[in-house]
């Protein structure tokens, strides 16, 4: 049978749509060594990969630890620690899946994060500050401060932390200690100083690992704590990795990154996503819709006609068209996929 494959077997008359249907091939077949082609391609890829690896290697910037952060930038650490204690940090006020302290992103009624709920519960005051400090065995002063803080009323706690959060904005680091302007912080000053010392010693890194077991592979808590500070972001900004720098597709140094994320990161650079607090959900929704469109291109009128309109196919199959469009009578013209040639076989 020679007709549109779409009408294949149906026997019924169906209009041939050039962007949906294709003729069956009744023209020439030529030898084509697939296995040889594959092995040559494999060899070329291996040589290219080895060449690129030898010449350019690959990036491996050392991770930030809470220890390295608090030593490099102790004031930033202390300023972050107080926001973890009073729950105003990024994680503390995040909402689902970490807690219920923030509003999940939504588009109108569509709020999938809210529907999914809390799955990795994090209470920053206890998980990031008070809990780790309670594991310090030989520091009665800090222990007493933690007890005093826990025993205080929520209103009292809020008054202390609010006062300290304001004061710590002007804190400095002098002679290995945090200098914060004096004020009525109750035990909060001791707590934050204690946590800063603990962080600088490296003990906080271990205390934050989610699992209270020997082996751990979940770094959610230390990662979120580090990401709440300014230090990680400033390093990333320096490396051109921030969201507003198209950072998603970039790599440290000069290596190429995930260039295939260009469209995804593009949407974050344009209004309204650029400034929206629901940007992530908006961008994800756009990308999901675009991906569905890409997958369904064969069925979308107009979009599926672009290849025929752009006529790039004439170049790709130029030999074929040269052959089938030869004026009749010229030797060498053979029937290919051209339509009005003979009905051929059934």
């Amino acid at each position: 049978m020679s007709a549109a494959a779409a009408a294949h077997g149906a026997g019924s008359r169906r209009r041939f749509k050039p962007d949906r249907d294709a003729d069956e091939w009744h023209g020439r077949y030529v030898p084509y060594d697939l296995v040889k082609e594959f092995l040559i391609a494999l060899l070329v890829v291996i040589l290219l990969v080895v060449g690129l690896a030898v010449v350019f290697a690959s990036p491996d910037d050392k991770p930030v630890t809470i220890r390295s952060w608090s030593n490099a930038s102790p004031v930033d650490f202390a300023q972050t620690a107080i926001t973890e204690l009073d729950g105003t940090s990024g994680t503390g006020s995040y909402g689902p899946p970490y807690n219920t302290n923030g509003t999940a992103q939504s588009i109108g009624f569509f709020a999938p994060a809210k529907w999914a709920g809390v799955h990795h519960p994090i209470d920053t005051a206890n998980d990031f500050v008070l809990g780790p400090l309670a594991t310090l065995p030989n520091d009665p002063q800090v222990g007493a401060a933690v007890s005093e803080y826990r025993a205080a009323s929520p209103a009292q706690q809020a008054a202390w932390t609010a006062a300290y959060e304001k004061a710590v904005a002007d804190a400095t680091w002098q002679n290995g200690a945090l200098k914060v302007p004096a004020g009525d912080y109750g035990p909060v000053g001791t707590i934050v100083s204690g946590l800063t010392s603990m962080a600088r010693s490296g003990a906080l890194d271990g205390a934050l690992l989610s699992s209270r077991q020997f082996y751990g592979t979940d770094y959610t808590k230390p990662l979120l704590f580090i990401a709440d500070g300014q230090y990680l972001a400033s390093l990333a900004d320096h490396q051109h990795l921030s969201g507003d720098q198209w950072g998603m597709m970039n790599e440290t140094g000069n290596w190429p990154g995930q260039a295939w994320l260009w469209l995804y990161t593009l949407w974050y650079q344009v209004p309204p996503m650029k400034t929206s607090s629901n940007a992530d959900l908006q961008v994800f929704s756009i990308m999901i819709i675009l991906t569905i469109i890409l997958a369904l291109v064969p069925f979308i009128p107009g979009v599926r006609s672009i290849p025929r309109w752009t006529r790039l196919y004439r170049l790709i199959w130029r030999n074929h068209y040269r052959e089938v469009e030869r004026p009749p009578g010229t030797s060498g013209a053979r029937s290919g996929a051209g339509p009005p040639k003979v009905p051929a076989s059934v």
Partner: peptide, 22 residues
């Protein structure tokens, strides 16, 4: 490494916003 830290803490917002982060 640093890449993983930065990419994961940035990407979490996108994934979380869809509910898949659960």
């Amino acid at each position: 490494n640093f890449d993983s830290q930065w990419i994961s803490t940035q990407a979490k917002d996108g994934i979380n916003s869809t509910g898949v982060g659960a």
